[in-house]
Simulated assay, not measured.
Amino acid sequence: MTSTDDKIEQKIKGLNPGSIIFTEDFQSLGSSGAIAVALHRMVKKGVLKTLARGIYAKPKFSKLLNQEVLPSTEQVAEAIAKRDRARILPTGVYAQNVLGLSTQVPLKLVYLTDGSPRKITVGNRTIQFKKTTPKNLALKGEISKLVVQALKEIGKDNATDEELKKIKAVLQNEDIKDLKHDISLAPQWIAEIMAQAL
């Protein structure tokens, strides 16, 4: 009979390096106690790395950096959203950073979500999921939804000419249909800024 350890090890072997794994991925392979012990052993063996409580990664080796590379905090947030079948939307300084409006890499990533609100610590960074209204998550464009969040963080009448120029430039890469859709949902002052990209 194959032990829980062996079953879990087999399953992990079949995963791509860089994969994010949750304790519940192994639910069918044994009791939660046996799974916890098996995963702890895999971490000790170096087969897995612990990212946060109940969240692991199969390390990926980078020849370029000549070291193991773990998934980014952003990838962890996306994996949690996928697991929970929830939608997430980056906010604030993080949205500004993704758009190139800020060079500051936030240690705290705040996402709006229609999933459960929670806080997770990954290394020295924190992921926070804040419950929001469906309207906030109804934006379609990958770029325009970030622009709305970044501008909310900057505040009305606070955006510099440089920032407005950058926003207009990044919005040129947005699908025109999505952009028009998102303009119709954005707060009036943000919609006016976004409309300049049409």
Rank of each mutant, 00 (worst) to 15 (best):
F61D: 05
E68C: 01
A95W: 04
D114F: 07
K44I: 11
N124K: 15
T113N: 10
L101Y: 02
N124V: 15
S102D: 08
Y111I: 13
N66L: 07
G123V: 00
L101W: 01
A77L: 02
L101A: 02
I55Y: 01
L99N: 06
R85W: 06
V122Q: 05
T73F: 00
V122R: 04
A86E: 09
V105I: 15
R118E: 13
K49F: 04
A79N: 04
L51T: 10
V76I: 12
V43M: 09
I88N: 03
R87Y: 07
K108Y: 03
N66Q: 14
L107N: 14
E78A: 13
P106C: 10
A57C: 13
V47E: 10
Q96Y: 00
A52P: 06
V110S: 13
V69R: 06
L112V: 06
I120G: 05
R85C: 06
K44T: 11
G100H: 09
P59G: 08
N97W: 09
L112D: 08
N97S: 11
V110M: 14
Y111P: 01
T113S: 13
T91F: 05
I55T: 02
V76L: 00
L51N: 04
S62F: 00
T113I: 02
D114G: 08
Y111S: 11
A77K: 05
V98G: 06
K82V: 12
Q67I: 09
N97R: 14
D114Y: 05
N124W: 10
K49D: 07
V105K: 15
R85A: 14
A79W: 01
P106E: 09
G123H: 02
R87M: 14
R125F: 01
L64I: 15
E68R: 11
A57S: 15
K60C: 04
S62W: 00
Q75P: 01
L109H: 12
T91L: 15
K58G: 04
L48F: 01
G115T: 10
I120P: 03
K49Y: 03
T103N: 12
T73L: 11
I88M: 03
R53L: 12
E78D: 10
L99T: 07
G115A: 05
L89G: 04
T50W: 00
I80E: 03
T103D: 12
R125I: 02
V76C: 00
T50S: 15
L48D: 05
E68H: 06
T91V: 12
S116H: 12
A57E: 03
G46Q: 08
G100W: 03
G100S: 10
P117Q: 13
G100Q: 09
S102H: 06
N124F: 10
Q67E: 15
V110E: 12
T91K: 13
G100V: 09
K82H: 10
P106V: 06
A52N: 07
G54Q: 02
G54P: 06
A95G: 08
L65Q: 14
Q104P: 06
T50G: 12
G46T: 07
P90N: 07
A86I: 05
S102I: 11
T91N: 09
D114H: 06
Y111D: 08
Q104A: 11
T50F: 00
R41P: 04
T121Q: 15
L65H: 07
S72F: 01
A77E: 01
T113C: 07
T91S: 15
V43I: 15
S62Q: 05
S72K: 14
Q75T: 09
